[in-house]
């Protein structure tokens, strides 16, 4: 029994001197794993137009009902173009179903996780905020 007590003390002492696993958050950021489901990103084509064809599938599948799509008839071609696309992050549960269902792979889950805000309005994001500013999609 005494040996066990000493082994216990030794174990905790080793931990005392080992490196802490704490991430000091505002200064150090966390790198999410590849398949992390953060804030959505709307992908664009080479002309900086959203890939979305406003089919409305994501709106339908969303279990929280937090997607709102506004669209109009495509002036120069068949189909529709999306004019606004709002995701209400007050209600989104990051299930990723909208991404799964999209026939055009127009929407993906991004890595951004800092979604706290002091006013609710800023958490209802529109197309402009969701559009991918950096990445060009090969997927036309």
């Amino acid at each position: 029994m005494i040996k066990a007590l000493i082994v216990g003390l030794w174990t905790t002492l080793r931990h005392f001197f080992s490196r802490s696993v704490t991430l000091e958050y505002p200064e150090q950021k966390w790198t999410p794993p590849d398949r992390f489901r953060g804030r959505h990103i709307h992908l664009t084509n080479e002309e900086r137009k959203p890939l979305c064809v406003a089919c409305g599938l994501c709106e339908k599948v969303c279990p929280s009902g937090c997607i709102t799509i506004e669209s109009e008839k495509n002036p120069d071609g068949p189909g529709k173009v999306v004019t606004d696309y709002r995701i209400n992050y007050l209600r989104c549960c990051f299930c990723g179903l909208c991404v799964e269902v999209c026939p055009k792979n127009a929407i993906v889950m991004g890595h951004e996780y800092e979604l706290a805000s002091e006013d609710k309005e800023s958490l209802i994001m529109n197309l402009d905020q969701l559009l991918d500013k950096r990445m060009k999609s090969e997927n036309q």
Binding site: T12, H15, F16, F17, S18, R19, S20, V21, T22, E24
Partner: peptide, 10 residues
Amino acid sequence: RCLGFFQVRL
């Protein structure tokens, strides 16, 4: 603080 270090946190 010491308890933190013992538990591998800060």
